[in-house]
Design a protein around this nucleic acid. Structure first.
Lengths: 116, 116
DNA sequence: GGGCTGATCAACCGAACGGTTGACAACGTC
DNA sequence: GACGTTGTCAACCGTTCGGTTGATCAGCCC
């Protein structure tokens, strides 16, 4: 119930079945059995997957009689995106800086060769 | 060797130690022992972590005598960002659309009640 | 060459993971 | 109230994962 941790989000999304479930939920809510349909595993397994996604804050379950429509929560994606962007940008800045240094550098035989 | 898979990228980033390593590499390349420094685990464990990151295409190792400077590869981040953004956007569009529908809807008793 | 340093390889261990089956709870329907 | 449907809980199983220790390889330096 606390704020979702990056640990949970990333490891939830590490599984292809769970990523697929997220992909399908982007088109609209679906019940557990509906979600389980395409996969060659038991409903219990899919139910577990959804629990994992829920713990990560990626989806939420509502109650509709005996059905449990699953809904994609977009917010948590921001958490990931922010984390990723932070380091991607830093790495790219460093890369560009290095690039500039190299460009400004005259042909130097002590330089190691580029990686194909 | 092959293109990095989302599986590998997400599961690599699921581990907090590995995320931390990535974070530190954003500030600049570092050798394995340098990276291992802050952690309370063996160098072998850190070496394994770096291998996982390498397999995911998130970092690359170069050769400098007996040292192995590790370098952050920013490209793969795009792979993740693209995946995330695709579904985040879809989910948010649906949300906004629903929002509009609800806003445009007059008080209707046949509607199921709202969730608090 | 001998020794130190940096890093990986190999075998092993316990915990966590993804899957299974079986039982069961909750709800709508007849 | 019995029954079918939907979904979860619980126990179990094999594999993967993060960690360990010990051995080994590669490269610098005296």
């Amino acid at each position: 119930m606390g704020a979702p941790q990056l640990d949970d989000v990333f490891s939830a999304l590490a599984d292809p079945t769970r990523r697929d479930i997220v992909a399908r939920l982007a088109d609209g809510d679906a019940t557990v059995t509906e979600l389980a349909g395409p996969y060659d595993v038991s409903i219990q397994a899919v139910s577990k997957h959804i629990s994992v996604l829920e713990d990560a804050g990626l989806v939420s379950k509502t109650v509709d009689a005996q059905r449990r429509p699953v809904h994609l929560e977009a917010e948590v994606f921001d958490l990931m995106t922010k984390w990723i962007e932070r380091y991607r940008r830093r790495a790219e800045q460093r890369y560009r800086r290095l690039d500039r240094v190299l460009a400004a550098m005259p042909d130097d035989p002590s330089d190691d060769h580029d990686d194909t």
